[in-house]
Design a binder for these strands. Structure first.
Lengths: 211, 211
DNA sequence: CCCCTTATTATACGCTTGCATAATTGCAGG
DNA sequence: CCTGCAATTATGCAAGCGTATAATAAGGGG
């Protein structure tokens, strides 16, 4: 009833930017870019809408920043898996594949996030570049793991196999995110490791790390 | 300057409904559900916005109808491939896989369409049911083709292999739609057929139909 | 040929959107 | 303690949204 002006605390620029980006990502994951309105983002970040324009030139600017942040986080996650992975080439590869096919990577929200940005990626060249770089980064990581295996293959075969393995992983990731209940516990990781092994002509299943 | 009332022709109910659905699908493919506004849909269908409410109870009603139409078309396309496919089990499977990895199935617009609906599918149980039915229909088709191959496998292996093959196809489809220029002509079909063959333990590449 | 049904257009309303701008207030430096 | 900066809130606006309803005309049946 008093109509008092809302109290607030001054946060550092970095923390506020991160909070706004995190809020935007949550909303995009849940309901697509359409659900990520300026007001909804501000509300979830515990802030009033005007503040967004203090940290970002426009909503599109915030959206681009959020997309970049998401892709950077994905890259970092993938890299960190390899840091704690075993040394034997087969076990490394199996660990990498399995990590991509278990929570929190396989997750409806994660897939929703990815799908939510697709149309902007297709239209905005800057976002397309980020998308492509991240995709190729992942595939290069995978191709490196494959190349380290104790066998010899020519470059063309290596490339084709990396694309194929990447596709299995992406496909399983997609289906796990779209309809999680259709798969048993850790079934996706098992199928993924088995299939990657089949494509490469080696038995990878014994190296599947426990969930 | 005259402000004359716009001329029009009366079309049959079916044709108008189809035109509105087609327009909605185009717009969703290009810019997501957010781009498919009532006014934009009507405009593309060559009609004024009010007419939409004459054929659909609400915009959501139209959107659901559009989604169902898209999924039905996908099912029909898949079935029609098998009608004109060869009889030999290996050739049938190869033809089916290849058809899913060539235009017009692999296409940025097609992928945009799929991604545009994801969030509605995740929230609307009716759309989720359609989604799941279509996915399982495709996988069953694939599993049937695999089962027809001259080898014997137990049911559990068959299921896992069908999921894996489906995943390779989906993954390649995804990547072909997201970044078409990264792949050579018909490269996706070749990699897909090769990988499915590897997963199943047979050489399928000789059966790849010409583009 | 005219009339009646209804497919279609036209107009208006309330709400939400992104954005601009003005008013406040938290907080650090003297 | 107070003064100044800028982080934050508050308010307002034009445009676009989905929807409701009234006006019009197309075109087939008598």
């Amino acid at each position: 009833m008093t109509g008092e002006r809302r109290k607030f605390r001054r946060e550092g620029e970095e923390r506020r930017r991160d909070a706004l980006i995190a809020a935007a990502l949550e909303l995009v994951a849940e309901g697509g870019t359409g659900a990520a309105t300026v007001r909804a983002i501000a509300d979830r970040a515990g802030v009033t809408p005007g503040l967004i324009r203090h940290y970002f030139q426009s909503k599109e600017d915030l959206t681009r920043a959020a997309y970049r942040a998401m892709m950077d986080a994905m890259n970092a996650d993938n890299a960190s898996v390899l840091e704690t992975a075993p040394e034997a080439p087969e076990a490394r590869l199996a660990a990498f594949v399995a990590a991509s096919l278990r929570p929190p990577v396989v997750d409806p929200a994660s897939m929703g996030l990815w799908a939510g940005f697709i149309h902007m990626v297709q239209r905005d060249p800057a976002m397309a570049a980020v998308h492509e770089a991240t995709y190729l980064h992942y595939r290069d990581l995978l191709q490196g793991l494959i190349a380290a295996l104790p066998r010899d293959t020519d470059a063309a075969t290596l490339r084709a196999q990396a694309i194929a393995c990447n596709a299995v992983i992406d496909g399983l990731w997609l289906e796990g995110g779209a309809a999680p209940h259709q798969f048993g516990p850790d079934e996706l990781a098992r199928i993924g490791v088995t299939s990657v092994g089949a494509i490469l002509g080696i038995d990878l299943l014994p190296h599947l790390p426990k969930p």
